[in-house]
């Protein structure tokens, strides 16, 4: 379980690193949740997730992992980073190894995993990301297609078997097929009991993957709750500059005529409601 208690992060506006301030953030991420973090550029999303494994230290407040302060001196920060695995934006840009195997094994090896377990960890992570044949492990990571690269990069974090998988814009720059596959595998991770936290601009992804939304605006937490409640608060959505996905928009318009239409995540949920309506 990950908990942030009254966390503040300040920054120098002139810094070329463009990190963003956070103001009094408290939140809790429980086991087996899937949480989407949203907000416009510069709202502090990236800063927030970097607090999760100690890449950024809060100026005030505490980050607790299983009730231990991760920034205290007694804590082995590597153990924290093993438990909280962060996949950065465009993770395939970090590739450096000769083979997919070496690339995926890099993290767990650094975490001190033994050779005997390593092989299993790598292959099971690759399998999680949809690579069924072991042939892929001997290929160069640079020779893969864009979608495959992304999945290998995510596998390289999953191989450390983190309790919490944190993804920064996992679908950025991918095409429809790539997104469809990746979202299937991420949903599988959630189903298999992994906690998943992801940052996204894309509300369709949010609808598809997340149960809970944390919204940030100018470094403050402005929403924390269920996805359906988030999308019913149109004023808030407009304020934080988010694009309402068309499924939600259509459902909200239909609600004026069909007052009992439930919250819908996909177009087919809308049409199956309508079909039921028309049958009666």
């Amino acid at each position: 379980m990950l908990e942030l208690k009254n966390v503040f992060v300040t920054y120098d506006p002139n810094t070329i690193f463009m990190s963003n301030a956070l103001v009094d953030i408290s939140l809790m991420i429980k086991k087996n949740e899937s949480v989407g973090i949203v907000g416009r550029i510069g709202s502090g999303k990236s800063t927030l997730i970097q607090l999760f494994n100690g890449l950024i230290k809060p100026d005030n407040g505490a980050v607790l992992l299983d009730n231990d302060d991760i920034n205290s001196k007694q804590i082995d920060i590597r153990k924290v980073r093993k438990k909280v695995g962060i996949v950065f934006q465009y993770p395939e840009e970090q590739f450096f190894a000769e083979t997919v195997f070496a690339e995926v094994a890099f993290g767990p090896k650094n975490m001190g995993m033994r050779e005997t377990e390593l092989k299993d960890a790598v292959f099971s992570a690759l399998k999680d990301m949809g690579f069924s044949s072991e042939k892929i492990a001997q290929r160069s990571p640079f020779s893969l297609s864009g979608g495959e690269k992304r999945r290998v990069a995510i596998a390289s974090i999953i191989a450390m078997n983190p309790d919490i998988l944190v993804l920064d814009e996992p679908m950025a720059g991918m095409d429809f097929n790539g997104k469809e596959k990746l979202s299937k595998y991420i949903k599988n991770e959630i189903k298999n009991g992994r906690t998943v936290v992801f940052v996204t601009h894309n509300m369709e992804e949010l609808l598809e993957i997340a149960d809970r939304v944390i919204a940030l605006d100018e470094g403050k937490k402005v929403f924390d709750g269920r996805v359906r409640d988030f999308f019913s608060d149109e004023k808030l959505i407009e304020k934080i500059g988010i694009d309402i996905p068309s499924v939600v928009r259509m459902r909200n318009k239909l609600k004026k005529y069909y007052s009992d239409i439930p919250f819908c995540r996909t177009p087919l949920e809308i049409s199956s409601y309508l079909k039921k309506r028309y049958r009666h």
């Binding site: 068309s246 239909l254 005529y257 087919l268 309508l274 079909k275």
Partner: peptide, 30 residues
């Protein structure tokens, strides 16, 4: 999404045409 919904409804004879535009779809349904 508008096409996915209208194709599904068209197959079941609820509407007679497919709509690209969301407003058109909602208009015809309502």
């Amino acid at each position: 999404p508008s096409v996915i919904i209208s194709e599904d409804l068209r197959k079941h004879g609820i509407i007679s045409a497919s709509f690209v535009d969301e407003e058109d779809l909602i208009g015809s349904l309502c």
